[in-house]
Design a protein around this nucleic acid. Structure first.
Length: 293
DNA sequence: CGGGGCTCCTGTGCGC
DNA sequence: TGCGCACAGGAGCCCC
């Protein structure tokens, strides 16, 4: 009987937790912090490309030849984008930008047979780019600021560029629904489906409300909660719902703290109402109808 | 501006 | 049992 219950329990976990977790700001920040400790000043001794479509620019040949014998100097994160500053064998500075999109992973360790691109390092270890759905993008560019994604990106939510008065003002000017607006990287950088849902829950705001209909107190609260939830998630080394892994291939623990994300049909941890899942802007959106008004 | 739909991709789940 | 379709989603694109 006990064994049957245990099997049923895991079966339920498997069936209900199908939603994918995407690498958002806290996950990308965790990868950056992990990799900084192990790859800086290491030289790339081989570039192995198993899936050429993930390399967007320049040509494969140039991508390989520039990276070969380059050294990692620095890692930068902007929103969900990671950029590795490298110095080539010809002493030129380039940036290897990596967008993980849905299922991308950057893992340091031994070579992974299912990697899409592997970089062999001078110490014999590998930096592997894994990506089941291959929607991620690698680019090698001279000027990272010139990339359209970077040029168009909104403020970093954990930096001083993210100001409460600006946030209140811009929110009051937008008619779009607040949840899809939070996902817009031009509005604020680094927030994805998980943290948008969770920040709105803590702020008790209905994700379907028009941004301009939030009052000043609500906008202020949301601003504060965006910052606090991202900081908390970084402390937990990110959320691993399914695909996300840190720089060493390990899971993060923030998913244990979810109030609404992936909890459709389950009781709200605050008011016991049932968590609902609706579509907003084409994206699955979780919320508690009891708590969020 | 806002919103809808399509595209990229692959594993999974469901209907017939 | 098995085939084929729908779905999941970040982000760019097009269109109304």
């Amino acid at each position: 009987m006990l064994r049957v219950s245990i099997i049923l329990f895991y079966f339920c976990l498997l069936t209900f937790n199908l939603e994918k977790a995407l690498p958002e700001l806290p996950e990308v920040e965790t990868i950056k912090n992990d990799l900084e400790k192990v790859i800086l000043n290491k030289k790339i001794t081989a570039v192995i490309i198993h899936r050429s479509s993930v390399v967007k620019e320049p040509s494969l040949k140039k991508f390989k030849s520039l990276l070969l014998d380059s050294k990692f100097r620095k890692i930068i994160r902007r929103g969900k984008l990671l950029a590795f500053e490298i110095i080539t064998a010809q002493k030129e500075i380039y940036f290897l930008s990596v967008h993980l999109r849905m299922t991308g992973q950057l893992v340091y360790g031994s070579d992974d047979p299912k990697s899409r691109v592997s970089f062999k390092l001078s110490n014999g270890f590998y930096l592997c780019y894994n990506d089941q759905r291959t929607l991620g993008e690698l680019r090698l560019v001279k000027d990272i600021q010139a990339l359209n994604v970077v040029k168009n990106m909104g403020p970093e939510p954990l930096s001083k560029d993210f100001r409460v008065n600006d946030f209140i003002k811009y929110i009051s000017m937008r008619k779009a629904k607040i949840k899809p607006l939070l996902l817009d990287q031009k509005f604020v950088a680094g927030i994805g489906n998980i943290y948008a849902a969770e920040a709105l829950f803590i702020s008790k705001i209905d994700p379907a409300r028009n941004a301009c209909d939030l009052n000043e107190q609500e906008a202020k609260l949301l601003f504060k909660n965006i910052k606090s939830i991202l900081k908390k998630a970084i402390k937990c080394r990110g959320s691993s719902f399914s695909d996300y892994r840190d720089g060493h291939g390990n899971k993060g623990t923030f998913s244990n703290n979810f109030y609404v994300y992936g909890r459709k049909g389950q009781a709200c941890l605050v008011c016991k109402d049932f968590i609902q899942r609706i579509k907003l802007g084409g994206r699955g959106t979780y919320f508690c109808p009891g708590c969020q008004k």
